[in-house]
Amino acid sequence: MFEAKFEDGGLFKKIVEAIKELVKNVNLEANGTGISLQAMDTSHVALVALQLNEKGFKKYRCEKSLTMGLSIENLQKILKCSGNDDQITLRTQDEEPTTLSFTFESKNRISEFQLNLMSLDQEQLGVPDTEYSSVVRMPSNEFTKICRELGNINEAIGIETSKEGIKFYVKGDIGEGQVSVKINDTEKPEERVECEVDEPVNLSFAVRYFNLFNKASALSSQVILSMSQDQPLVIEYIIEEMGSLKLYLAPKIND
């Protein structure tokens, strides 16, 4: 028996909105500690990892670990039948569920849906706990804007960290540009820019993955970029009181 109730159903909708362009079919894992999801994008360049802790739910029960294979596209079709202010409950009865039930509750209506599940034998990747040599915390809408603007100039974006801060740069056919974000310790947390640079990095990435993933900015006013030289970068959106949504993106390297 599994039951998880989102107090803020809009949050769940934003999470699905953020990953729907990146991953197609995913295994939703539920166990005593909460819900998790890990899936690579179709080109195996990025890995999406979601972790939601049971304490963040209005109601949470999971007697036995469950794996529920679902199509993100079909999940979205069901979620489109819910309002952003609805409370959303996920539920299954049996141990090997073939469907996942949804209840959408608002003050004037209650809806019930069932999503057919599928069995996906997806390779799970072990993400080692890494000490990143550069960790940058900045406003998520600022990061989104920089990626969108520089992404118009070139499909590869460079990220260089130093004690002074973080610099985004592009060199394209039409020309080049760079944006250096200044560190500021304003007391307003959503505007703060913090850099912990033990070792500077200089990495290149396909900016289209950032632009796809940055829909997750709706989840958090801050984004955390963790980097080490020649390692995948991690973009992390903290989901208040619940957990986090991460994108691991493999770098582009000089051949």
Partner: peptide, 14 residues
């Protein structure tokens, strides 16, 4: 030029 690497080059399959 820049070669895109794959994520499963860095993370082992479990």
């Amino acid at each position: 030029g820049l070669q895109q690497t794959k994520i499963n080059k860095y993370f082992s399959q479990i």
